[in-house]
Simulated assay, not measured.
Amino acid sequence: MILLPQMFMLFMLMTVGIICRKTGLMDDRISKGMSGIVVNIASPAFILSAGINKDEVVTNRQLLACVIASVVIYLGLILISIFIPNILRLKKNYFGTYRVMTIFSNIGFMGFPIVSATYGDVGLLYAAFFQFPFNLLIYTYGIRAMRSGTDVDFDESFSWKNIINVGVISVFVSLLLYMTHVHIPEPIEDVVSSLSGLTVPMSMMVIGYSLGGMKLKSLFEDYKLMIFSALKLIVIPIISVLLMKLFIKDQILLGVCFVMIATPVASMSAMLAQYYGGDEETASRGVALTTLLSVLTIPLVGAICL
């Protein structure tokens, strides 16, 4: 139950976000601004902090194993996503939305904070490697999947600017600093550390704010979405970890891979659905429902598998 204290902390921070919405301390404008700060400032600083002035405790072989694991995991999720709509017997217009929800998890807003709190800087360095395939796939395969059944030209939306963004750049810079042992002056390190400290509370409050606007009863009445949530949060993580145990002996890397898979549906799923003709309502409900359930499923499934 190593993940239970961390999940309890995150749940309490989400509760603060809900309270802020109910009391009017936060509105859509503030929430959007906080999201921008997390994505463009706090989260990159969070990643950089894993590589600044750290003694080398991860070998090149371990880093290579992490890269291979991240690629294999995303390939596996893409394969699973092909079958999910048929398992749930969905109408064709829902296929793209459910495929995207299957593949993409909330690794930035929830995954990184959980990994950092549970596995420290080494775990965070591993987790950072998942950001590049996430960005690459969500702006290519994710858009294509959401557009299934539409007549919009795929190539119009492709942009390397979206894939090579501040988050991905911070991954490379953090790795470079870690491997070259370049010493960063202490005042700069303190600034990066202070900014990185904003990631966990602000991201959880934004998630809580979003949940505060949902009619929670309606989330649990969609039985297909409930079955999907069980598959994404319980079945897929358990099977994945059992398979990975056959090949991965590094317990920190195994734990990071579990968190990357077991986190709830990425909020980007709802944004893609809105912009590219997917089912925005289902995607938004999927984000909300899996986020709520993950508070219980992540520590419970982790206790079973790890």
Rank of each mutant, 00 (worst) to 15 (best):
F132E: 04
I184Q: 02
S49N: 13
V115Y: 07
F109M: 04
A145K: 14
Y178L: 06
I82H: 11
L124W: 02
A128L: 07
L90Q: 06
K92G: 07
V122G: 03
N86R: 09
V122Q: 10
T97K: 11
L64Y: 10
P85Q: 07
V182M: 11
W160C: 14
S70P: 00
F83V: 15
A65V: 02
L79Y: 04
N53P: 01
Y98D: 01
I82M: 12
V173T: 14
N93F: 10
S170G: 06
G120M: 06
P85C: 09
S159R: 14
L136E: 05
I87K: 05
V182T: 09
I68D: 03
A128I: 02
D155K: 15
H181Q: 08
K92V: 04
T180I: 05
I138P: 03
R144A: 10
G108Q: 00
L88W: 09
S49T: 01
F172L: 12
S105L: 06
L136A: 10
S148A: 12
V100K: 07
I68P: 01
N86T: 05
I184A: 02
P113W: 08
Y119E: 03
F134M: 08
L177W: 05
F104H: 14
I52S: 01
V57F: 08
L137C: 10
H181G: 05
V72L: 15
E56S: 15
L136D: 04
V182G: 02
R61H: 02
F132L: 10
F130S: 10
E56Q: 15
E156N: 13
Y139W: 12
R99H: 00
I138Y: 01
F132T: 12
C66S: 14
G108M: 01
Y94I: 07
R99P: 01
F132I: 12
R147Q: 15
S174E: 07
I73C: 05
G76P: 10
T150M: 07
G120Q: 09
V171M: 02
L79T: 11
K54L: 04
S105V: 07
Y126K: 04
V72D: 02
V152L: 15
I68V: 15
G149A: 11
L75P: 03
V122N: 12
L176Y: 13
Y139M: 04
R99Q: 09
V72Q: 05
I184H: 00
G96Y: 12
V122L: 06
F109H: 06
I103M: 13
I103Q: 08
K161N: 12
I138L: 00
F132Q: 07
I82K: 12
V72I: 15
K161F: 06
M179Y: 07
N135H: 12
P85K: 03
I73W: 00
R89T: 04
A50L: 02
L137R: 05
N60Y: 08
L137V: 10
G149L: 11
A69D: 03
A50H: 00
T118N: 14
D55A: 13
V152N: 13
S157D: 14
I103W: 10
I163T: 10
S49I: 01
R89E: 09
G123E: 00
L79C: 11
I163A: 07
Y139K: 03
K91S: 08
L64G: 07
E156D: 14
G149T: 12
I138M: 04
E56C: 13
L63M: 13
N53V: 07
E156T: 14
G111Y: 01
D55M: 08
T102K: 11
M101G: 12
N93I: 06
N86G: 09
L64N: 09
L64I: 11
I68Q: 08
